[in-house]
Design a protein around this nucleic acid. Structure first.
Lengths: 124, 124
DNA sequence: TGAACTGTATTATATAGATTAGTACAATTA
DNA sequence: TAATTGTACTAATCTATATAATACAGTTCA
């Protein structure tokens, strides 16, 4: 179900974090749903359990999921989730926009770039 | 004049590349202006000449500057420069936007985020 | 209770990228 | 010629990433 690019320059645990956020954002994962266990997920994805654990740990620090020893890891409740996901991705937009602004690119050009991305076909 | 954060997680040569692009974009550096020599720049910034060289090499591959052995490194001519700078930073915007879109964030929310950045005080 | 599962922690190792250090060479300039 | 320029190369160090292997604590359920 989840595909990782093991050759990519972006770390595996970052890719995994993003995939989970994506599934949460589109509703494929719902609040309080249980995620695969660290060991099973690692086996299914063909990676090391420590790498899954690192992704889970960071997602927990960010309020996206919560983990309980002996029980498992679960998506956060709705209230936390929406806020965290939005904040997470809009921060990146803001950072990239700040760079463009610093370099003298006009607001309308940036807005047009955003619009263009939303006009494109969804490649999910 | 140029300040680098040697403790940052973003590589020094990336920071240096961005600073040079920034100076070019705001007109502080003009087409065909000569940049500091690899060795002088490294000494002034308190970093290794190889790090400056790496930044210069990548900027040359990207068409932002050009270098001539024995003479020095110079900002590209105007035609190349605008196109390269725009492409460079708008690509980042597009990538960040694609992530937000993938995660179900609405177009208007992204556009509002961009607008907000442009409304803020300039911190140059 | 005990087996099988959960998350968590720790240590060690391997690898890649970033950075520094030092040296060397070719082209330009004065 | 002397001093500068960009360029190339090797080596050493450091950090982040990823894997491997093991161990421990809490939960679940037969």
């Amino acid at each position: 179900m989840i595909k990782l690019d093991l050759q990519s320059r972006t770390p595996i645990y970052e890719q995994l974090k993003h995939k989970i956020c994506e599934l949460a954002a589109i509703g494929q994962l719902r609040p309080n749903d249980q995620l695969p266990s660290v060991r099973n997920f690692a086996r299914d994805l063909g990676i090391n359990p420590n790498t899954v654990q690192k992704a889970y740990q960071e997602l927990e620090r960010e309020g996206i999921i919560y983990s309980v020893t002996g029980k498992g890891s679960f998506l956060s409740s709705e209230l936390d989730l929406d806020a965290q996901l939005h904040q997470k991705y809009l921060q990146r937009i803001a950072q990239a926009t700040a760079l463009a602004k610093q370099c003298g690119i006009r607001e309308q050009v940036v807005v047009d770039t955003v619009r263009k991305v939303y006009e494109e076909e969804s490649q999910l």
